[in-house]
Structures are given as structure tokens and as C-alpha cells.
Computed example of a mutant assay.
Amino acid sequence: MSQAMLGLTADQVVSAMGLPDAAIVNQRVPKKMLLENGVPTAADRKLIQDHIEQVTWVAALKPANAGVPDFQDEQRTYLEVAVLTVAMRDLGGLTANSTKVKRISELLHRAIPYPLVVVLSEGEHLFMSMCHIRWAQKEADKTVLDGEPLFATLTADEFCSAFLEALAMSQQPRTHLCTLYQGWMDTLSAWQAAKVSGRFALSQSTAHAAERRAALQRCRELDARIASLRSAASKEKQLARQVAANLEIKALIAERQQAANIL
């Protein structure tokens, strides 16, 4: 039976990362830790209680067990990179842009003061999330998210094998833990880019990876704008306004193609 028929699992993704045995922890993270950290709202607390089945701290990558130096500068201190799996339940109607799953992953990034690789699953649905953290400017010893979390839906498609192979720790930069983590983020960005470009290719450089992330974000923004205009145009009764909307849609599609070419 093919992998596409079987689907992609959290265990497959973690196994593909090729984590050193010495870094494996496999400890359950109590919900209490999430409820008490990250300043969750009442709605967040309900989300955690109702939809998280189990959080497992799979691995803690440190210089001593991973052979990768730590990293410190004025903005951040990376002494450890953690890999977590999250089993979810009763979410229903999952889509690639599920706000519930994204929020759960964000709460984890906020609650645990380490750079996290989070693999989330619910039934046949699988997601991956990463986000850099930095020191808070006004609170000593507090960390905050450094930008929006990188979040993607993982599926067993034509890019799956290449993605899993590229995910291996042995394929990532190992200058220090920050570059290792960024390497995994860039690999996930390559997966996202493949959904648009139709081919899986790793970034050629740090600059290319940043350019690719910006292009992906622009494609998402343009897709939303195009969808909105098409919806409005379909309801418009005045011919002149229909023509104007269609011309704008055409221009946006051309701009999206330019952004997609970067990928």
C-alpha cells in the first residue's frame, strides 16, 4: 500500500528528523503547564481543555547530546531546541487554515520558553509549526514570539518523500542551534513553496529563504484578495463594475505569478 493511501503520521515526521538517541525524552507535558503559562484567555483555556488529548516532549536537543553549539546574542539565547508532538481531538472540519489548530500551536510556542518544532495531529490530519523566540524588551527572563509562527498542513502527496528526506537533522546547518532551527523552518517553507510552484526545492541561501517566505506571504494575501473580488464580481449587476473588478483580478493574478516565480 502506498504512503499516499496510508497518509502521513506524526511518528513518520519525527523519525525523518533523525534525532540523536541521547536527545530523546518522550515525556508527557501536563496541560497545567499550558494553562498557567503564555497568558491564555478564557477561550484559550477552553481550547486546551477540550481539544488537546496529549502533548509529548519528544526530544530536547542540546550541545551535549546533539553536537551543535548553543547560540546567544542580544536578542535571543538558544540553549535547547525542543521537539513536541500534540494529539488533538474533536476539532471537526479541519482545513489548512484551521484557526483552532493554529491557535493551539501558538499557545505552545508562547508557553514553553524554547524554540519548538511542534507536530500536531487529529485523526488523519497533520500539521507542523515553528517560531523563533526572543527576549522580551521590558520583562527580564521572559521570552516572546519573534514574528508569526510558521504553520503548515502536511499531507502524503508527491512532495512528501522529498520533504521527509530534507527534514533530516543531518541535512540541516549545524553552526549552532539557531541555524539548525532556521534550517528546519526553511525546509518547511520549501514544502509550502512546493504547493504553489509544483516542485520541491530547498532554498539556495539564507537570503533566498527570506525572499521565499515573503513571496509565500504575498501569494496568500493576493489569493485572499482575488477570491474576495471574484465573489463580489459574481454578485455585481452593473456591467461597468464587473469589468473593473475583472481587470483588477487580472492584474492581481499577474502579480501573483511574479511572486510565485520566486518560489
Rank of each mutant, 00 (worst) to 15 (best):
K235W: 06
T179I: 02
M169F: 04
L116M: 05
Q192F: 03
S121T: 11
S205R: 06
A60D: 12
M1P: 13
R89D: 04
A227G: 05
I133K: 13
P149G: 14
A82G: 12
Y114A: 05
A254F: 12
R199T: 09
K31T: 10
S228M: 11
P63K: 04
A59G: 04
R199I: 10
T187W: 01
S203I: 06
Q49H: 13
L108D: 01
V117K: 05
S105K: 03
T41W: 08
R218G: 01
G18F: 01
N261S: 11
S203H: 14
D90G: 13
I253D: 11
A224N: 13
F159M: 14
E74Q: 13
A152L: 10
R103D: 02
E211I: 13
R225Q: 05
A254D: 11
Y78C: 08
K62M: 14
A10P: 00
T153V: 08
A43K: 14
H125I: 00
K195R: 07
Q12T: 07
T175D: 12
M185G: 07
L79A: 13
L61I: 12
G183L: 01
A43W: 10
R218M: 11
E158I: 08
D70M: 14
L164G: 01
L8R: 00
P30M: 07
D44N: 13
D21V: 12
Q204T: 12
T77H: 14
S98D: 08
L216G: 00
G93L: 13
L47V: 04
V196M: 05
C160R: 09
Q204A: 15
Q257H: 05
L91S: 15
R199K: 07
K142Y: 07
N26L: 08
K46W: 03
D44C: 12
K195S: 07
R199F: 10
L150I: 15
K31I: 07
L263N: 00
L8D: 00
T77G: 13
A215F: 01
P40E: 05
A244C: 06
S231H: 14
R174T: 03
L263F: 01
R76S: 11
S228W: 03
A64P: 01
Q172D: 06
H109N: 06
A215I: 00
T99S: 10
R103Q: 11
E106D: 12
F163R: 06
I253Q: 08
I112A: 02
N261M: 10
P20R: 07
Q217I: 07
L177Y: 03
M130I: 03
T56M: 08
S121L: 01
S170I: 09
V101L: 09
K31M: 15
G123K: 12
M17L: 11
R76Y: 04
M88V: 10
H208N: 09
R199L: 07
S228Y: 11
K100H: 15
T175Y: 03
A254Y: 10
C178G: 04
W191L: 10
K195V: 02
P149R: 10
Q54S: 15
V119R: 01
M33N: 09
V101Y: 04
P113F: 01
A64S: 05
D73E: 12
R28D: 14
E106T: 08
I52R: 01
A96K: 05
A152V: 12
C160S: 05
P69D: 09
